[in-house]
Design a protein around this nucleic acid. Structure first.
Lengths: 165, 165
DNA sequence: ACCTTATGAATGAATG
DNA sequence: CATTCATTCATAAGGT
């Protein structure tokens, strides 16, 4: 499983090659896909079971009861795993500037996997971009060009670039 | 599970910081955990549904007997006493909102007393401020008494307001 | 050893 | 957009 690779990277060194990176990347991707499928499968089966015994015990990972009797519900939107995946994928795809129309489309698509509003989507992209940028700021304040190494007090640490959540 | 056991002493040019590693690590861990739970759940339901056929399809992906998703290592940054003192002092000094540049300076200084990243510092101030504010919510509803602004730099205990419920 | 508390980190939403 | 706020989650620390 993925643990092997992860552990390897840590135990042996603090660095990763592009290849290793790719491996991890695809592994995570695989997990994501599998999870989606499982969720779907589970949903179906749960629906079936409900007809018989109404045994519901799925509050594992923020699968909010759509349209359920949420009395003291959370006020804050929490995207489901599937939704995050979709959003991430869109974000990653390069469409960094979702227009009004685009937002609607995305919202529409996400609605199939849970309650969501256009504002949610909008905020999500805003936050995503901002945080991505901030990480870069933290990460690379130094010049990208290979110039004279300044007298750094310590090793160049803190390069926080988001993976691909 | 130990599939990446080949790349041992690879000299890597492309590096990954501990933060990045941690992100990946937790992501994989999260997916692994979710997958396990889903598999388990699915298994249970399948067993329920057709207790006669006993359809087991849970070995689709990875069904490992051992505690697989246990990838843990360094997880959370914990400031040293000295670092806390410095941070506390800076916070007390009035710089309520440290800018990027300021963060870097502080990080630099703290680095002399232990490993820190700018993200750590950033988070620290965020939390510190939030917490400080929350504390006053109880202390001063509308009293005319002296309003306590801060605590002593190195002494900031007394945080027992569980709010309600 | 478990339970509680403190606190670092993540993130949706708000504000400028 | 850039920052900030508020809430929440996860986990290290500490008490019983």
């Amino acid at each position: 499983m993925a643990e092997g690779a992860a552990e390897e990277g840590v135990l042996c060194a603090k660095v990763m090659t592009d290849e290793q990176m790719e491996v991890l990347r695809s592994q995570i991707s695989a997990y994501a896909t599998i999870c989606e499928q499982l969720v779907e499968m589970h949903r179906t089966m749960t629906a079936q079971q409900d007809s018989l015994s109404g045994t519901r015990s799925s509050h594992l990972f923020a699968d909010q009861p759509s349209g359920g009797a949420k009395i003291s519900a959370k006020q804050r939107w929490t995207p489901t795993a599937v939704q995050v995946r979709i959003l991430e994928s869109i974000f990653y795809h390069g469409n960094g500037t979702p227009r009004k129309q685009r937002i609607k489309e995305i919202t529409s698509e996400l609605s199939q996997h849970g309650q969501v509003s256009e504002t949610n989507v909008y905020n999500w992209f805003q936050n995503r971009r901002a945080r991505s940028k901030r990480k870069q700021a933290f990460a690379a304040p130094s010049n990208t060009e290979s110039e004279a190494e300044e007298e750094s007090p310590s090793e160049k640490k803190a390069k926080k670039e988001d993976a691909f959540t």
